[in-house]
């Protein structure tokens, strides 16, 4: 089932001025239900513009965005209700923290939705547990948290609105490996327990390989490729042409193939590679 359908969407910045610039050019694709979709592309490929379309922060210059088959701009006055259904975590979301306590900050979204106190409290607890913030963290000022914790608090603030689609723009940018894993684990937990669709925007091929089932590749304001993870990664040459490269393990498998090793090219993670190679070595002996 398609959760979000992007139909021939174009977007032009500063239309009608000498600085006019097309950020999106006739873009079409689908985001499936119960699925983690990755959008990958360079800075300036249009991916950040695209994510702001999903929840109606930007309105397409032409084309439509459908949520459950209905145009989100059908009734422009109700666009804010779309923002609760499609939760957007912007780049470096820790810069949006402002409340006195982490708890109050996570509650900001649900409060705007007009939920009851009990409901809000419950959602704050739930989303804090997704991202691994403790009860004592909730009482702290967001400005006293470490960088990674701030990021998690900001993401929890969106999760607390319990959006049907969770969109994250570069959720792991600038974090160390440990911080990165905690964030992605939290996102996975949210997806599993709520059944929401998740969209992750990133420029890290390795993250995409690890977490996303469907992948959309953006280049020069257009969709360059879309499909299942394996369909995308087997087009290594094209990816390299766009300047994105393939995940390290995929590259390794290709190099092995070139050396005459007979191994599946459908491998992206260290775990899978370990399995396949130990079978290969086992068989050789």
């Amino acid at each position: 089932m398609s959760k979000i359908t992007v139909e021939n969407v174009s977007y032009v910045y500063s239309g009608g001025t000498p600085f006019e610039m097309a950020a999106l050019n006739d873009v079409s694709f689908e985001i499936k239900e119960n699925c983690i979709t990755g959008i990958i592309g360079h800075t300036g490929s249009g991916k950040s513009t695209l994510v702001q379309m999903f929840n109606g922060l930007l309105r397409p210059s032409s084309g439509r965005i459908l949520l459950d088959g209905r145009d989100i701009w059908e009734n422009p006055k109700e666009i804010s209700s779309i923002r609760y259904r499609v939760g957007l975590v912007m780049q470096y979301p820790e810069y949006q923290l402002f409340e006195e306590t982490v708890e109050a900050d996570i509650a900001f979204g649900p409060k705007n939705m007009g939920l009851s106190e009990d409901e809000i409290a419950e959602r704050v607890r739930e989303s804090a547990s997704f991202v691994g913030l403790s009860e004592s963290d909730l009482k702290k000022s967001p400005f006293d948290l470490s960088g990674g914790q701030k990021r998690r608090a900001a993401i929890a603030g969106i999760m607390a609105m319990r959006p049907e689609v969770l969109v994250l723009d570069e959720p792991s940018a600038g974090l160390d490996p440990a911080g990165k894993n905690t964030i992605f684990d939290g996102i996975k937990k949210y997806a599993e327990s709520t059944g929401s669709a998740v969209v992750i925007v990133s420029h890290s091929m390795d993250d995409m390989a690890k977490y996303c089932e469907d992948i959309i590749v953006m280049s020069h304001s257009r969709v360059a490729m879309k499909g299942k993870r394996n369909e995308i990664f087997c087009r290594g040459d094209e990816l390299e042409e766009i300047g994105l490269g393939v995940p390290q393990i995929t590259l390794l498998m290709r190099l092995l193939c070139e050396q005459g090793v007979n191994i599946s090219q459908d491998i992206y993670t260290v775990d899978d590679a370990e399995k396949a190679l130990s079978e290969l070595f086992g068989g050789a002996r």
């Binding site: 923002r83 979301p93 705007n112 609105m161």
Partner: peptide
């Protein structure tokens, strides 16, 4: 630029 970004982020949380 930062102001615009923060405003978008809060709008995404339902700020009006």
């Amino acid at each position: 630029e930062e102001t615009e970004k923060i405003m978008s982020a809060q709008k995404a949380r339902g700020a009006d």
